[in-house]
Amino acid sequence: MVRFKNRWLLVEFIPISQAQSSITTAVTSNLDGKLIWGALRQSILTNFGDTGWGAVASSLTVKYYSPTTNTAIIRVSRDHHKIAWAGLAMITTIDGTRYIPNVVHLSGTIKHAQLSAIQHNRVVVARYRALAKTPSGYQDSYDTFLEKSTLEIQALQD
């Protein structure tokens, strides 16, 4: 039996807005896993042609996306993960909105991608709280988001 080896990319999509209001832009974003997959497909086709797309097409999936933190976990085969990473780096717009894709973590197992995603969610929520200037003991909707997203991320299967 042959085991397929994958790489897991944790990617943060940073929206570029004219108002420079990152909190409202991140929350009201209409981005989802399907749009990310389509934009990545188009980027790979444009920059690497049919050969590049043929190499990654069978293994490329967006396993998780959080609209609150604009982070996604993307699975791709180990042999061709550099093509997918380069395709991500060349994405400028998704569905008419400008984004900067930032690869936060590259992992060989889903478990390490999950741990990194949970940690990254905590960092992003801390960043949102710092921008809002809330005290550290303040209870807000981000606490329930962190609990819910942690359970969702831990439930991911290969």
Rank of each mutant, 00 (worst) to 15 (best):
F145K: 06
Y64W: 12
H112E: 01
I44S: 05
I94C: 10
S59W: 07
N121M: 00
T24E: 12
T68H: 11
L151D: 11
T109F: 11
V124C: 04
K82Q: 14
A126K: 15
G52V: 00
G87S: 02
N70V: 05
T68I: 05
H81F: 15
K34R: 14
H120P: 06
W37P: 09
K82S: 13
N70P: 01
S149N: 08
I83C: 11
K5A: 10
I83G: 04
I36F: 03
V11S: 02
I16F: 08
H120W: 14
V125G: 11
Q157H: 02
A132L: 15
E147R: 09
H105Y: 04
A84Y: 08
T69K: 04
H80Q: 13
L31S: 05
D95Y: 12
F48H: 14
I74M: 05
A84M: 12
V27M: 11
N47A: 14
R75S: 05
L45Y: 12
I153E: 00
I110L: 15
P101G: 07
G137A: 06
W53H: 07
I118E: 00
H81S: 13
G33R: 04
P15T: 00
A86H: 13
E12Q: 15
F4D: 10
S17Y: 00
Q42C: 10
D143Y: 05
Q139T: 15
K133D: 14
L146E: 01
K82D: 14
V124H: 10
Q42K: 14
H80L: 09
V123T: 15
K148Q: 12
V76W: 10
T71F: 03
W37C: 09
K63I: 07
S66I: 04
R75D: 02
A84V: 12
A155Q: 09
W85P: 01
H80K: 10
Y99L: 03
L156G: 06
A155V: 02
I94D: 05
D50S: 15
F48I: 09
S116C: 10
D50K: 12
R127I: 06
G108L: 09
Y64P: 01
V62H: 02
Q154E: 04
I44Y: 11
F4R: 04
V123H: 14
F145H: 15
A72I: 11
L31G: 04
I91L: 08
S59H: 01
Q139S: 13
R129V: 06
T25V: 08
W8F: 03
S59E: 04
D50A: 12
K34T: 14
P15D: 00
G38P: 07
A117L: 02
D32G: 03
